[in-house]
Amino acid sequence: MVGVPESHSGWTFITSHARVLAAIADNPHIRIRDIAARCRLTERAVSRIISDLEQAGYLSHTREGRTNTYRVEPDKVLRHPAEAGLPVASLLSLLVQDETERTRKPVAP
């Protein structure tokens, strides 16, 4: 079982909501426990964020046995007026690695 991640002080460029959404976009079958570890959040915080994202229409899920399958709504526009008109897909293109990028080995100098 994964413990509570160490705390972080200071500001960051990416919000916890964006990190959770990116983790789900990267793997629609990901478990809350794994999202928490990847995003360095508690499972409770991840559950709350998923609920926020679902209520706002950015995310939905279907239950398959004991697991959830998530669906990100890529055409939903971002909420802040400074990003007016930008779809979620624009944000995710910055945060989610393409499969080819993930499996590519670094080139030696």
Rank of each mutant, 00 (worst) to 15 (best):
M1Q: 12
V2T: 14
G3E: 05
V4M: 09
V4D: 06
P5Y: 13
P5W: 14
T12C: 04
I14A: 10
I14V: 14
T15V: 13
T15G: 15
S16T: 15
S16M: 15
H17G: 12
H17S: 15
A18Y: 01
V20M: 04
V20R: 02
A22F: 03
A23M: 03
A23I: 03
I24E: 03
I24C: 06
A25N: 07
D26I: 04
N27G: 05
P28Y: 01
P28R: 00
H29A: 11
I30L: 04
R31L: 14
R31V: 10
I32P: 11
R33F: 07
A37N: 09
R38V: 12
C39F: 09
C39K: 07
L41K: 11
V46D: 04
V46R: 03
S47W: 14
R48N: 06
I49T: 11
I49C: 08
I50P: 07
S51T: 11
S51G: 09
S51W: 13
L53H: 08
Q55F: 10
Q55Y: 08
A56V: 01
A56P: 02
A56C: 03
L59F: 05
L59W: 03
L59G: 02
S60D: 14
H61T: 06
T62I: 15
R63Y: 09
R63T: 07
E64A: 06
G65K: 05
R66H: 15
T67I: 06
T67L: 09
N68L: 15
N68P: 08
T69Q: 14
V72H: 01
E73C: 01
D75Y: 09
D75W: 10
V77N: 00
L78I: 01
L78A: 00
L78M: 03
L78P: 02
H80C: 04
H80V: 08
H80N: 04
P81V: 05
P81K: 03
A82W: 12
E83T: 13
A84Q: 11
A84L: 11
S90C: 08
L91G: 02
L91F: 02
S93W: 04
S93L: 03
L94P: 06
L94H: 04
L94V: 02
D98V: 09
D98E: 05
D98I: 07
E99K: 00
E101T: 01
E101Y: 02
E101S: 06
R102A: 06
T103P: 00
T103V: 05
K105E: 03
K105T: 01
P106M: 00
V107Q: 07
V107E: 07
A108K: 06
A108F: 06
